[in-house]
Design a protein around this nucleic acid. Structure first.
Length: 84
DNA sequence: GAGCTGACATGTT
DNA sequence: CAACATGCCAGCT
């Protein structure tokens, strides 16, 4: 695994429950402020329950997409009270 | 081993 | 205001 991937996963993993982070922020924290696109690709390929990918959203405020389905993402976020 | 694709974002046209 | 084009990095074909 590349260091970028590891960092991204570590960051997303550390997102507190009920909190949300944008792809841009995660990418920035991972060391590549303009690689927000790569962040999505990584999360897409990572079916890891330890990584709350549903807490990562777009900068626009949109939730973006989710491997298990956008509905599931919304449901989880609502369950954590992270919907605005 | 090279090229295309994609969970995005920003700037132009 | 909406559509198009460009940039980054990893994963597939």
């Amino acid at each position: 695994m590349s260091s970028f991937t590891e960092k991204v996963l570590a960051i997303v993993k550390k997102i507190p429950r009920g909190k949300m982070m944008t792809y841009a922020t995660v990418a920035k924290r991972a060391g590549s402020p303009q690689a927000f696109r790569t962040v999505g690709s990584i999360l897409k390929k990572n079916f890891n329950p330890a990584i709350p990918c549903h807490r990562v959203i777009r900068s626009d405020g949109s939730l973006g997409e989710y491997n298990r389905g956008i509905r599931e993402k919304i449901r989880k976020l609502r369950r954590e009270g992270a919907i605005f």
